[in-house]
Amino acid sequence: MSTVHQPEPLVEVLTALREQVMGVNETVISTVDGLLVASDADAVQPESIAALSAATHSLGRRMAQEAGGGELRDVSTRSAGRHVVIQAIGERALLTVLGDDGLDLAGLQREIHSTVEQLAKILEADAPA
Rank of each mutant, 00 (worst) to 15 (best):
A93H: 09
S30Y: 07
M1P: 15
T15C: 10
E91Y: 07
T77L: 14
L72I: 10
A41C: 07
T115G: 00
R73E: 06
P7I: 07
V44C: 03
S79M: 05
D42M: 05
L17S: 00
A120Q: 09
L14D: 01
R73D: 05
P7F: 04
P46N: 04
T77Q: 09
T27V: 01
M1R: 08
L35H: 14
Q45K: 09
D33T: 15
A80L: 14
G60R: 00
N25E: 15
G34S: 11
L119D: 05
E71P: 03
H83W: 13
N25P: 01
P46G: 00
S76M: 13
G81I: 09
M1Y: 07
I49K: 03
D101E: 15
L59A: 10
T96C: 11
L72D: 08
P7V: 07
A41Y: 08
D104G: 04
T115H: 07
R73K: 15
A80K: 13
S79T: 08
E8P: 03
D74I: 12
T56E: 00
S114N: 09
I49F: 06
R92F: 09
A93I: 05
Q118C: 07
A41G: 09
M63G: 10
E91N: 15
A67P: 04
A41K: 01
Q45N: 12
E47R: 08
R110W: 10
S39G: 06
E117C: 10
A51W: 02
R78M: 00
L10S: 07
S58V: 05
I29E: 04
I49A: 04
H113F: 12
R78E: 15
P7G: 01
H113A: 15
Q65F: 09
G60C: 06
G60I: 06
G81E: 06
A64M: 05
T115V: 14
G60S: 01
G68Q: 12
H83C: 00
R62H: 13
M63W: 02
V21H: 09
A67Q: 15
V116F: 00
G99M: 06
V84W: 00
D40Y: 11
I112V: 15
S58D: 07
D42I: 02
R73M: 08
G81Y: 00
Q45L: 02
A64D: 11
E111F: 03
S58H: 10
D101H: 11
A106M: 08
